[in-house]
Amino acid sequence: MVDPTPDAAPPVLELQHLRKTFRVGFWAKKVPAVRDVSLALQAGESLGYLGPNGSGKTTSIKCLLGLVVPTGGHARLFGRPASDPHARARVGYLPESPYFYDYLTPTEVLDYVGKLYGLAAADRSRRTRELLGVVGLDEAARRPLRGFSKGMLQRVGIAQSLVADPQLLIWDEPLSGLDPMGRKEVRDLMVELRRQGKSLFFSSHVLGDIEALCDAVCILDRGVAVAQGHLSELLRPDALESEAVLGMSAQTEAAMLALRALPEATVTLTPTGVRVVLPTAAVAALCRAVADLGLDLRELSARRDSLEELFLRKAVARGPEAAA
């Protein structure tokens, strides 16, 4: 999915060696925001866009939508340059912390957006009704946005991104500003949109959301894509670990020494016993030790390599010198 092949149908979204350098201050000092990002998203797939603050996520999304002109490389939507308005006709964009005209009501916002897509009046009216229901704003449909909470504005943002029934959704931090119930509802909506065959490209700081909703991820760090691919490929299947919780009435010196002697085991004392994390291959040795020492095995579970660990491995491990 992430490495485009020349023979495949044009990806719905594609970045090729994207670079963006801003010039700031009186002396127009160069500040690179995106150094080298290449990725592609095929129809019907979902891609999570990850990275710490300032890693270049929003800038590269803006390049994709024609808000920012790239310094180098290419940004394409449905095989067309991102600057082509026709390419954007099939895209629904939700900006990070969306801002709308606060004197408009949600109905007026959706109607305005519908006009920009060239929708007929009847279609606009129908879509407005449908989408206000989808995002749960029926009751507030005729209230000016200036009185809306951040979560309600986020819902308006989601609704306006769906007005033209786009094939590709580019959502920048769609779950920010929402309460737990709102987050669940938006997650459900994203699952449903995926089920309907929409392509989804979204950024988030919440790794759990990306892990739950995406086929693939692209991790950005200081403007460089440091990891990308399907989660099943990136999360190391060979690096499975297991975790055991042992009940020990008295933590004997001998038992602790025996546990610590297990291959690559990490032994942590807890108020009620001991927690041991070790490679799954060493579980048999752990069981033998438990039997020999007469310990109480309360819990034994497999620990999968998580997106958080992958993120830390890729983004944090680059260290500060990578920025130079």
């Binding site: 024609g66 808000l67 308005p85 954007r88 964009y93 900006p95 801002y99 920009l116 897509y117």
Partner: peptide, 9 residues
């Protein structure tokens, strides 16, 4: 407010 408008066609 432009960020929600200009990404439209």
């Amino acid at each position: 407010t432009l960020y929600a408008i200009l990404p439209k066609p």
